[in-house]
Design a protein around this nucleic acid. Structure first.
Length: 586
RNA sequence: GGCCCCGUAGCUCAACUGGAUAGAGCAAUUGACUUCUAAUCAAUAGGUUGCAGGUUCGAGUCCUGCCGGGGUCGCCA
């Protein structure tokens, strides 16, 4: 059930009925014709821009064309009133019969309502978080985690075959540092005195258990080995331990991944995967040996002007060519990135999304270049940049220092305000906007946190059903055919407004998915909750409008159907957002 | 300096991707709790969409140039 698609179809067939369209059929592009809800509800329920878009190619003026189109549409029994307004908008008010049919269809679809097939089962890869496995997740990782996870939920809701993926940066120098830090903790666990953690190593206490575990497993054996020997062993244990911590952090935020892809895998077997990817790029004509100009701005003192293996990314949209091999012969991080993309492409993804923090803005162009070169234009890569989150407590910025180890972890935040609140706050903003996150606002003044507002609406729906179960004790409310009950019963303007809001759901879902904008779901949920709360309160002023009327069981069942539809939409939306849909607020 | 993101109500943000009279929440004022749970609702007030041009039936949205805020720059990861 998608009301707007339905009426788009009706508008298009109305257009085809027009003589002037038939005459010029080939020269006319109907794809710009759209059917939308009017911004101002007083204009009606649906509006189309058809006349304005088509007037020019038809050589007529929009108002006249609009009149002709509306003359055809007028015959449609579901349209109660039609009018031409402004520069040539055609506004339609729909009959209450049509709204009842719409509601009945929504109820009949149940939890499936809002899903669509626009994804067509296509494989799509969403990569997000990808925090370095050197410690617990930082609060800065929250946003990307939530945005990526919710976007992935949204995409699978519209029929994509989504893979949620995490890229583990476990191959760089920072992992050696991690291993050395753990080795220190290992010696500590064996009883050595460790005064102060030397600068350059990770100081956090979270490494202590890893050291103890090593002591338990190996006793003193590692201590006698040269670094070259213990390093791979400690590295393995350390990475596993850090990933365990990270997985737990993610679980606390209700974030999940299907694949954890290790960078080490690319370097394994003498960097087979990277070599193959570079060979592939070379074969496709994107690799050469040459010199790079020094970076603009101040020239680094240790700048080496030498020839190296470069990816000619300037040919595919980048600003500068990118090095693939370091002076010591090892591969750059970027080379691994190329191999990683290559691997994803080989795994059959035609569409890939990277959710990154704003500090990675500089990587967007080169990754797009990689996508273009590796897939020869076949794969679509989208980079979603999440702007920074600034933490506040009671209006004061929270100071964080990573060096002293007193940074705010993701777990701290989730423990303090709850996963639902964190997730909704992170979603209640376009990802391209910076976000201020105030602990005090999120916890104390719950009004400032929209998730409660939405959850409360959902809980209220269930409260109605709890009440109804008492009033209609002789009716099995679970087996009522609400879809059937709705007919002729939902007639009040306030009820219809609510149905109209629900009818937007598929449209919002599709456009949010297409534009990769999960925040739209959060805003829409707020809208639905608002419409529901408003309608609820009308029942307080006018008892006639209450959902439950013990003298009119038939009417009550119809209205319970409406409530059920509201609850279903809220639940679906909340689950896309990765937040819970409580049945009561406590 | 180059590149990327952002400038919308006092504050925090929307605006269906080019549509109509730019909308919500917070803060302010007023009213509704014996309730289908007031974590709610109704109402008032608040605007030269940073500035200047351009594109067209139509611009907060697209293009150009400024102004202001943030991020980023490397054989690091």
């Amino acid at each position: 059930m998608n009301l707007f698609k339905d009426f788009e179809g009706r508008v298009l067939s109305a257009l085809e009925a027009l003589e002037q369209i038939q005459e010029k059929k080939d020269g006319i592009n109907l794809s710009r014709v759209s059917v939308e809800p009017p911004r101002d509800p007083s204009h009606g329920d649906v509006a189309t821009n058809a006349a304005m878009v088509l007037a020019k190619p038809l050589g007529t003026n929009p108002r006249a064309l609009a009149d002709e189109i509306s003359n055809v549409l007028e015959k449609d029994a579901d349209i109660e009133r039609i009018s031409v307004a402004g520069p040539g908008f055609i506004n339609m008010k729909l009959s209450s019969t049509y709204w009842q049919k719409t509601l009945a269809a929504i109820i009949a679809e149940g939890e499936a309502y809002g899903r669509s097939g626009i994804g067509g089962g296509q494989k799509i890869n969403v990569e997000y978080v990808s925090a370095n496995p050197t410690g617990p997740m930082h609060v800065g990782h929250c946003r990307g985690a939530v945005v990526g996870d919710s976007l992935a939920n949204l995409l699978s809701f519209v029929g994509f075959d989504v893979t949620k993926e995490y890229y583990i940066n476990d191959a760089g120098a920072q992992i050696d540092v991690l291993a050395r830090s753990v080795f220190l903790r290992y010696r500590e666990a064996l009883g050595e005195a460790i005064d102060e953690i030397p600068s350059g190593l990770y100081p956090g206490d979270y490494l202590k258990p890893v050291g103890s575990a090593l002591a338990e497993e190996f006793g003193t054996r590692l201590r006698g080995m040269p670094e070259g020997e213990w390093m791979p062993i400690v590295k393995d244990r350390a990475i596993d331990a850090m990933m365990d911590i990270i997985r737990q952090d993610l679980a606390a935020l209700n974030v999940t991944h299907e694949i954890f892809y290790s960078e080490r895998k690319l370097h394994a077997d003498n960097a087979k995967a990277i070599r193959e990817a570079i060979n592939d790029l070379t074969f496709k004509g994107h690799v050469y040996k040459g010199k790079l100009p020094p970076p603009k701005g101040q020239k680094p003192e240790d700048w080496e002007d030498r020839e190296q293996t470069l990816f000619k990314s300037t040919d595919v949209g980048d600003d500068i060519d990118r090095p693939l091999i370091k002076s010591d012969g090892s591969y750059t991080y970027f080379a691994a990135d190329v191999a990683y993309f290559h691997d994803k492409f080989e795994r059959g993804y035609k569409e890939m999304i990277y959710v990154l923090g704003a500090d990675h803005g500089g990587y967007v162009k080169r990754m797009e270049a990689v996508a273009k070169a590796v897939s020869e234009g076949e794969a679509k890569l989208t980079v979603l940049l999440c702007q920074l989150v600034k933490l506040f407590r009671g209006g004061e910025p929270v100071r964080m220092s990573k060096r002293s180890g007193d940074f705010v972890t993701l777990r701290d935040v989730v423990n303090e305000v709850g996963s639902d609140s964190v997730r909704f706050m992170m979603l209640y903003r376009k990802n391209s906007e910076p976000l201020d996150f105030d602990f005090a606002k999120v916890t104390e003044q719950s009004k400032d946190n929209p998730v409660f507002y939405v959850q409360y609406a959902h809980a209220r729906c269930h409260s109605v059903f709890r009440q109804a179960a008492e009033v209609f004790a002789d009716v099995d409310l679970e087996s009522v055919d609400y879809s059937d009950a709705v007919e002729d019963m939902i007639t009040d303007e306030s009820e219809i407004q609510l149905v109209a809001k629900l009818a937007e759901f598929p449209r919002i879902v599709e456009s949010a998915a297409a534009a990769h904008e999960p925040h739209k779901i959060a805003f829409y949920l707020y809208d639905v909750a608002s419409a529901f709360h408003a309608h609820w309160n009308r029942g307080k002023e006018t008892a006639e409008l209450r959902f439950i009327n013990n003298t009119k069981p038939k009417l009550s069942m119809a209205r319970l159907g409406l409530v059920r539809a509201v609850a279903a939409v809220l639940k679906s939306g909340l689950s896309i957002a990765g937040t819970s849909a409580p049945v009561e607020m406590r």
